[in-house]
Simulated assay, not measured.
Amino acid sequence: MNFESLNIWCWIIPALVGIISGVLGYLIGKSKNASVVDTSIDVKKLEAENTKLKTDLAACNKKVSTKDTKEKPANIASSLTANEPTTQVFDATEAKAAMGKRIKEDDLKIVEGIGPKIEGLFHNFNIKTWKALSEASTIKCQEVLDSGGDRYRIHDPASWPMQAKMAYEGQWKDLSKWQIKHKAGKF
């Protein structure tokens, strides 16, 4: 056996081992049933819940608009001018009965997601009442949160004006039900 024939085997043997290893690896990988997670059921459930929530929102908006027109009969509505604000009377007893705890008027902490520090941020922006918060846009609420720094980034203020409106209008049972259903953002 000469030196040249030995040199050829030094190339052929590793090449054959590589090819055989590649083919075996492919076959073993293909033979394993790689499980693909089927999330279509979860997506369908979420789409159904989203549709239900949209329907509930439309019903609530209709109820609110109907309630507004019912609360202002023609003779009273005609006597109001643009300069005369309507005022809601706060009923602490009714609030306590529905919410299960004592409620102070215009306490922003009654809104799910707002604690003492976030309430302080809103006060810095001169949003100190339920009415003022109910009239604030979600963008304004996010601006208030952003003013507190990165630590408030996890909060989602999308529902805060709606909750404040329920509190301002004295819809304590509805607010309580909503908060129970959406406790800490979890459904």
Rank of each mutant, 00 (worst) to 15 (best):
T138C: 08
E135T: 13
I19T: 09
S5E: 15
T86R: 14
I13V: 15
C10I: 13
K62S: 09
E47S: 07
I12V: 13
P73H: 14
L46V: 11
A15Y: 12
E112S: 15
I76T: 14
I154P: 02
R151Y: 12
S176T: 05
E84W: 06
S31K: 08
G25I: 06
A34N: 10
D174H: 05
D38V: 12
S21L: 08
K181L: 04
L53M: 04
I12M: 10
F187W: 09
A15V: 15
A92H: 06
Q179V: 03
N126D: 14
G185I: 00
H182T: 02
D42E: 12
K117N: 11
G25N: 06
E112K: 13
A77C: 12
Q163S: 05
W130E: 08
I12A: 07
S35V: 15
I12T: 08
W130M: 11
K54A: 02
K183C: 00
V37K: 14
C141E: 04
N2Y: 03
T51Q: 07
I13P: 14
K101C: 03
D146G: 11
A15M: 14
M99T: 06
T66L: 04
S147H: 11
F187T: 06
T69Q: 06
N61I: 08
I28E: 01
I154D: 12
L57Q: 04
I19C: 08
K70F: 05
K67L: 05
W11T: 10
I139E: 06
T66G: 00
K131H: 14
A167N: 04
K140T: 10
